[in-house]
Simulated scan of single mutants.
Amino acid sequence: MTQDNVPVLTIDGPSGSGKGTITRLVAQRLGWHYLDSGALYRAVGIAAGWADLDLSDASALVRCTFDTDIDFQEDHGGEPRIIVNGLDATDELRTETAGAAASAIAAIPEVRAALRDRQRAYRRPPGLVADGRDMGTVIFPDAAYKVFLTASAEERAERRYKQLSEKGVSVTLPGLLREILARDARDANRAVAPLRPADDAVRIDTTGLPIDAVVARVLALMPAR
């Protein structure tokens, strides 16, 4: 099987739509590989922060993209850990600061181009489930299966608030809602690869839906195995 013939399921959507959790669970059920594309952008953003780089300096960020070593691992409980330049950056990657940095650098065409081949390299047998914002429109436009998840901004903020509060991170719900709305606007209006559903994507609104129900809806789109 050549790389181009490896089946791909893309799951795109805005922050807090549940795509990360859904993608991992669907990949586990299918026995396919998993790509968290957002973690790549967050990792570059963190590495840039560690190096005190200006997030508006495109050439410096491109060099940082090529120089940053990113490794996906699992802990003893099977939970994903992201190692950036030899350091476990998993918790830092999930902060709103890292998300804002990722959104900022994702708007730079040269950075997106530098990460394109890196993302496509995850396409390996028996298949790939890819989570992001432009997986179905830019990175894997030929994917046979495409999903676009969404949810109300209020519910996405509440999910994020619960997630961060459980980790002991001090945040406010109104603050998270403002950040989510601002990020939605940046992602939807950027000139390169704006956040939007692929024309052939199946849209699923996850507002009020339990995780198991969303996973079942996604798996129902796949051919019988």
Rank of each mutant, 00 (worst) to 15 (best):
L61P: 00
G45S: 02
Q73I: 02
S59D: 15
A60E: 10
G78M: 05
P126H: 10
L55P: 02
S152Y: 03
I70T: 01
A216C: 09
A104E: 03
E79L: 14
S17R: 12
A188Q: 14
D67Q: 14
T10C: 14
R156D: 04
T207E: 00
A89T: 01
A121P: 04
P126C: 12
Q119G: 13
T150I: 01
K162Q: 14
Y34H: 15
D88C: 02
T21G: 07
G16F: 01
A43L: 04
R124E: 13
L209N: 07
S152M: 05
G132R: 05
E110F: 00
V171S: 03
K19A: 08
L176W: 11
G16Y: 08
D4C: 08
A48D: 00
A58W: 02
T10R: 05
R94Q: 11
D134N: 04
E110W: 09
A144K: 12
A121R: 13
L177W: 01
A98G: 09
M135F: 03
R160Y: 10
D36G: 09
R123C: 09
W32A: 04
L221V: 11
L219R: 04
G20V: 05
I139R: 11
D212M: 03
Q73F: 05
A213F: 01
R116H: 13
P80E: 13
A193S: 15
R133I: 12
I211Q: 11
D57W: 07
G49H: 00
D36Q: 12
S37V: 05
R29P: 00
K19S: 06
S37Q: 03
G78D: 06
G77Q: 12
E110K: 04
V171R: 03
R186N: 12
H76R: 11
A102T: 01
A39M: 12
T150R: 13
D134T: 11
P126D: 06
A151Y: 05
A213C: 11
P194L: 08
D131W: 00
L177D: 04
L149S: 04
G132S: 02
A39S: 14
M135K: 10
E110A: 14
D52G: 03
L55K: 04
N85V: 05
G208T: 06
R190S: 08
D91I: 06
A198K: 07
A48E: 00
L25C: 03
L173G: 01
G99H: 09
T68N: 08
K146T: 01
L128V: 09
R225L: 10
R112I: 00
D88A: 05
D200C: 08
G175A: 04
